[in-house]
Amino acid sequence: MLNGDAPVLDVRDLKTVFRTRGGEVHAVNSVSFHLRPGELLGVVGESGSGKSVTMMSLIGLLPSPPAEVRGGQVMFGGRDILKASAGELRRLRGREIGFIFQDPMTSLNPVFTVGFQIMEPLRKHMGMRPEAARVRAAELLDLVGIPDARKRLKDFPHQFSGGMRQRVMIAMALACDPKVLIADEPTTALDVTIQAQILELVKDLRKKLGMAIVWITHDLGVIAGIADRVMVMYGGQVVEQAPVRALFADPRHPYTRALLQTVPSVRGERAPKLKVIEGQPPLLGAHPTACPFRFRCDKAHDRCGRENPQRRVVGAPGHDVACHWDPDGAGLAAAGLTSEGVVNG
């Protein structure tokens, strides 16, 4: 750790494997990252890059079998929660670590009122009596900007629009005042004008409540607007990590560079032709002994097939990349052997 602030969440070398009939799938391969208090860490990647599985495995939300967390350490609140029992994890989830999922329609139970569902964590985790919980639930709905909060507690999920349902999900996640909030593609299912409302709400809530947030998305635009730091994932690995401005101004990994160029913008100049990343995202069947991006990479070299690059510090403080190629120097950098050393977390 370079900075003084002790992280609230510190993940080291997390490995998750899915056992399937076709063999093992290495969904998360030695992922390390940390989250400082009050910080918003953006996690970017395409489907299958391992971004959701990483977050699910660190709080034990993956069904086992087929999933198996094979190694690593997740330090939260002074202990390794990978070693925690199922009961301890249950107390942690919802109370200390809150969640928001992508699709609010499938994560809310259609047969219970919204009020009941927000009150549930308050009663289970905080031991509140129904009256107190109801008052708190109304406060929470009010906090996330749902008008007429007290009355709407009696409504069922289908009586809310998509954006309002996502607000309800946020209220539920915030109910026990968690230290860490994990948001998995929370605005992907929403329209842009509604997405803009939710992003404003999250910015506002961060100012008021100051929790640390992990925000998973495939949308670079969303990340650019809200994140402090960004982690780019590809093929189950972290390929680059940097403060948000550094990542967009000076991307070091060939994948990040290509990704930033394939995304058109509604502002600024219009590119006459879209840049393309050829090929398909990788299947994670083979053991990860080589760089997962090598088949689509225009900088690939035989070394990339022999050796999976380690993350190493580049450029600005807090910026690291897992790639043999060095955009500053010619050819390949001596990965892991530079004076700055190998990064972990």
Partner: peptide, 25 residues
């Protein structure tokens, strides 16, 4: 409003854009 709501894949631009946040659905 629609155009102003589209997030921009650039942190510098993202800060400058004046967003029109529509109320309601």
């Amino acid at each position: 409003a629609l155009l102003s709501s589209v997030p921009d894949p650039d942190p510098e631009t993202a800060q400058q854009v004046r967003r029109i946040i529509l109320k309601g659905d």
